[in-house]
Amino acid sequence: MPPETELITILLADDDEEDRMLAIEALEEARLANEVKVVEDGEELMDYLHRRGQYTDPESSPRPGLILLDLNMPKKDGRQALKEIKEVPGLRSIPVVVLTTSKAEEDILRTYDLGVNSFITKPVSFDRLTDIMKALALYWCSIVRLPN
């Protein structure tokens, strides 16, 4: 990795424990050393981003450089959370990659035009997932220098 690259924190928002596990395993498999923080629903996500509740400490809850967002979450779903993120000037610049389970969902979300940076259709194959994580890391975490 080029020296000017800083390792960013990846914030994973997904209520599905297995999907979280797979995502983290895939990141490990891709040999990415980025710190991964996890939230389990839309409310927690917004709390994290706004440094509220259990997320007030900047040391343990650093600002993420990338959000991996699942759409179907309890309390506040991904669509709503996304909308709110894009409405706050300080958060708008954080790239959001949406994890979907189908092409159809992707189509629906596109119609909201919420400034999603990328989509990942949750793959059936773990190898595929690892490849995607690698590509993501390459694109968002290494080559592009993200604003702090």
Binding site: E18, L22, T101, K122, P123, V124, S125, F126, D127, L129
Partner: peptide
């Protein structure tokens, strides 16, 4: 999907 992925 889970069955497939964990199988893999």
């Amino acid at each position: 999907r889970k069955v497939l992925v964990f199988g893999e």
